[in-house]
Amino acid sequence: MSESEHEPVDGRAARWAGHREARRLELVDAAVAAIGEHGPEVTTEQIAARAGVSRPGLYRHFDGRDDLQSAIAARSVERLVHELEPVWRPSGRPFEMLAKALRAHLGWLEANANVYRYLKRTSFGTGGESATTNVRATVAGHVAGMLVDGSLGAEIPPPVAHPLAFGLVGMVDSASAHWLDEPHGASRDQLATQLTESCWAVIRATVGADRLAVADDV
C-alpha cells in the first residue's frame, strides 16, 4: 500500500489546499509583474501570458476578476509593509528614523509606480475601499504605534497619536502620489527631505519642541 493510501483524507485535503494556495500566490506574483511591465491598464490576457497559463486557466484559481484584483492588492500591501519592515524596528535618533522611513516609502513608490497606480483604481476586499486606502491605513497603524510607544521621540496618548499618524501618512501619500505623476523637477531625495521636515514640524507642534529636542539628542 502506498504512502498516500495510508494518509488520512484530511491530510491529503490539507496538502492539496496548500498546493492550490501556493499556485495562487505564484499567479498573483505574475500578475504584479505584468502590471509593472504593462501599466495599470493591464489586461487579463497579459497577466495570463506572464503567468504562462490560459485565461480560463488563470481564473480556475480565482472567483472572477474582483477576486483577482483583491488578491493583487493584498499582495502589494504585504510587499510594501515588508519593504518598510526595518522602519517598524526603530533605532537611532527620531528625526533620522523619520527620514529613513520616508526614503524607503518613496523608493518603493518609484520602483513600483505602475503597481501603485493600479492600486489607486482597485477595490480591496469586500468593503469596496480602494487598495491605496488600505495601504495608508496599514502604514498609519504602524506609525501610530510608534508615536504611542515613544519610538519617534516622546510617548503620545492614543487619542492624539492616531489622528496625527493618519494625518501625516495622508499628507505623505498625497504629496508623493502627485510627485510620481508630476515631479515638477523635484528629485526623490529632494521630496524626501521636504516631507521629512514637514512631518517633523507637525510632530514638534503636537508633542512640543522641548520634549522632542531632548529625545532627539539621545
Score class of each variant (00 low, 15 high):
28 V>K: 01
70 S>D: 14
58 L>H: 01
3 E>M: 15
15 R>L: 13
189 D>F: 11
140 A>D: 02
68 L>F: 09
130 S>Y: 04
102 L>D: 02
50 R>N: 00
106 L>E: 02
128 G>Q: 02
163 P>F: 05
208 G>I: 14
13 A>C: 12
127 G>R: 05
106 L>I: 13
168 L>V: 05
113 A>N: 01
47 I>W: 05
112 N>A: 04
61 H>G: 00
203 I>M: 09
35 I>R: 00
187 S>T: 13
124 F>I: 10
155 E>G: 06
99 A>D: 14
93 R>G: 04
8 P>M: 10
211 R>C: 02
141 G>F: 09
129 E>K: 03
83 E>P: 00
12 R>A: 14
122 T>F: 01
70 S>T: 12
205 A>G: 15
156 I>P: 08
187 S>Y: 04
157 P>A: 15
126 T>A: 14
82 H>N: 07
79 R>V: 03
153 G>R: 05
70 S>C: 08
43 T>K: 06
130 S>C: 08
119 L>I: 01
19 H>R: 15
98 L>Q: 10
204 R>E: 15
137 A>S: 10
106 L>S: 03
99 A>K: 12
35 I>G: 00
62 F>E: 05
14 A>Q: 14
49 A>M: 02
168 L>Q: 01
82 H>S: 12
143 V>P: 06
53 V>R: 11
184 H>K: 11
179 W>K: 00
218 V>R: 13
23 R>I: 04
192 A>Y: 06
89 R>W: 11
205 A>M: 14
122 T>M: 04
107 G>E: 10
141 G>I: 06
182 E>M: 09
114 N>E: 13
113 A>R: 08
58 L>R: 02
116 Y>K: 01
130 S>L: 11
47 I>L: 11
71 A>L: 09
148 V>M: 14
106 L>D: 02
38 H>P: 08
176 S>T: 10
141 G>W: 08
17 A>Q: 14
208 G>V: 13
48 A>R: 06
212 L>S: 08
115 V>N: 02
212 L>W: 09
68 L>G: 02
27 L>K: 06
38 H>N: 13
190 Q>F: 07
109 L>D: 00
33 A>M: 07
189 D>K: 07
209 A>C: 07
44 T>V: 15
10 D>F: 11
51 A>F: 04
116 Y>Q: 07
147 L>V: 03
192 A>I: 07
82 H>L: 13
56 P>A: 06
13 A>K: 12
186 A>L: 15
89 R>V: 13
163 P>R: 05
195 L>M: 12
100 K>M: 15
217 D>M: 14
116 Y>P: 00
173 D>A: 12
148 V>L: 13
9 V>Q: 12
207 V>L: 11
73 A>I: 05
142 H>L: 08
112 N>D: 12
214 V>C: 06
110 E>F: 01
101 A>G: 13
118 Y>E: 00
70 S>E: 08
16 W>I: 10
143 V>C: 06
134 N>S: 10
144 A>H: 05
116 Y>V: 03
157 P>E: 15
35 I>N: 01
113 A>V: 04
126 T>K: 07
148 V>F: 11
85 E>F: 11
166 F>T: 10
139 V>F: 05
196 T>G: 09
170 G>W: 07
133 T>V: 06
108 W>M: 07
44 T>L: 14
208 G>N: 12
184 H>G: 07
164 L>E: 03
168 L>M: 09
68 L>E: 06
